[in-house]
Write a protein that binds this DNA or RNA. Structure first.
Ligand SMILES: NC(=O)c1ccc[n+]([C@@H]2O[C@H](COP(=O)([O-])OP(=O)(O)OC[C@H]3O[C@@H](n4cnc5c(N)ncnc54)[C@H](O)[C@@H]3O)[C@@H](O)[C@H]2O)c1
Ligand SMILES: NC(=O)c1ccc[n+]([C@@H]2O[C@H](COP(=O)([O-])OP(=O)(O)OC[C@H]3O[C@@H](n4cnc5c(N)ncnc54)[C@H](O)[C@@H]3O)[C@@H](O)[C@H]2O)c1
Lengths: 215, 215
DNA sequence: TTGCAATCGATAAACAAATATCGATATGAC
DNA sequence: GTCATATCGATATTTGTTTATCGATTGCAA
């Protein structure tokens, strides 16, 4: 028997990644007035297997399902919210207020997931001072100061590829601990900083490939 | 011995997903003037293990590495391009020319991955007729016609959540075979259509969670 | 030329995740 | 009430993915 006493049940990465899927779906069911959802019905809609659904839900919810009824939707929703940490608000800053940066700044959907972009930074003088979705755009030279004073540890990079590494360096030196990078380029970063690359083009390309493989 | 004669070597999903990472990194190395890259050096930069790197590369490239030298970078790049299908151009259409939709339309990075967004569609009269990055914005009622005449089978949904399902239905009826959905909502779709949900908020939230777990 | 060290590829082991099996249980029909 | 059935949870099996081991190869330096 392995000694798994420390961490009650470290939730699998794969399971965790499916949670937003369950969440959106269950919100939908709740809106339709449903009280219970069976693993079978969930699986069918989300293209998973009922077994997998039950296993996933067992990981995140103390609440057990009732035979012939399924799982209580409202309870599941609350449990998923807790698991995903949608309740602990976390602040982030964004550098590069171009087309993508502006879209992200203007998006309020992050709030629902306990995330808040507090400000945008850019080198373009024309952008300084304006507000997007209530969030101020500030000159890049004020970056370190603001990050340190607000104790922010998440940074979003939406500058052009050429500037990404230097912006990254700036973030690291300012004490940022996790970086979400949209520039499609390799970035060097110290080991104690978390880097998540979001390559939208590759994501679309993989969809295209899947399509080609299917038909 | 299992009979794996049919498919030479079906590349693992996980391996495939790491390819853009390798690609960007190797582009970088090539720019620096490097000719060879060893699994050790690649692994160190990308935070993988050398063994994994060698296995991944063996999957996608016939070319074997040289002891004490590593892998020839230019060959690897070509092979990855083939594997990811960066060479077969594929057309897509986008519905919802809001802030996110405009960002995607104006992004030229998709071309590099063999993807081309040919047009945007919206219900907002003010947007009709303008061009973004050379791409026309057309009224939604012309959607089916254009999709069918150009035989397009990839659709991108960047409308508000409330409109996503109806836009999806429109796409399916027009013959779209793969959908990339940015609206954070559950969508019902026939089984013969591929659906890929891109939940940016959830992606950022998972970064935030990883951060919380690490420190 | 000879040996050292870095690197490779192949095979095996360990780990993670998805799926299958099966007995238990609660609901609704009769 | 009793039965049939949909559903659950636990355990076992299969499949997929990562990591470890090890002998072989090659370039470089003595
Ligand atoms: N637009 C998209 O849909 C999209 C999709 C995927 C990836 N990306 C990537 O995201 C990044 C931004 O894309 P975009 O379309 O918004 O580009 P953009 O040119 O519209 O915006 C870039 C912004 O970054 C600012 N900037 C440049 N260097 C800077 C620096 N050193 N410090 C601070 N600000 C700086 C510029 O002033 C500009 O406002 C690019 O790397 C792009 O490849 C964009
Ligand atoms: N902005 C972001 O960074 C971001 C991030 C993640 C997800 N999203 C999601 O992407 C979607 C779009 O976001 P946005 O910020 O661009 O919103 P937006 O309001 O700026 O744009 C929505 C656009 O869709 C159009 N539209 C609405 N209904 C339509 C219909 N039935 N047919 C055709 N066009 C229609 C509107 O006219 C508008 O131009 C939303 O679902 C949002 O939740 C946005």
């Amino acid at each position: 028997m392995t000694s798994n006493n420390d961490k009650p049940t470290a939730i699998m990465k794969a399971t965790l990644q499916r949670m937003p899927l369950y969440y959106n779906y269950l919100i939908d069911r709740a809106k339709d007035g449903d009280i219970y959802a069976s693993s079978t019905s969930i699986a069918q809609s989300l293209r998973l297997t009922p077994i997998q659904v039950r296993k996933d839900l067992a990981c995140v919810s103390q609440n057990s399902g009732k035979p012939r009824m399924g799982f209580e939707i409202i309870t599941l929703l609350k449990d998923i919210e807790i698991i995903l940490g949608y309740n602990n608000v976390d602040n982030a800053v964004l550098v590069g207020v171009g087309r993508l940066g502006r879209a992200l700044l203007s998006y309020s959907g992050f709030n629902g997931y306990g995330l808040n972009i507090v400000a945008g930074f850019d080198i373009d003088e024309d952008l300084i001072g304006i507000k997007i979705n209530g969030k101020p755009i500030m000159p890049i030279y004020k970056f370190s100061q603001l990050v340190k004073s607000l104790n922010i540890n998440i940074g979003i990079i939406t500058v052009s590829s050429g500037a990404a590494q230097s912006v990254c360096n700036l973030m690291v030196s300012a004490g940022i601990k996790a970086i979400w990078n949209f520039a499609p380029i390799h970035i060097n970063i110290p080991n104690n900083v978390i880097l998540k690359n979001e390559n939208l083009a590759a994501s679309l390309a993989s969809l295209s490939k899947e399509l080609a493989d299917t038909f």
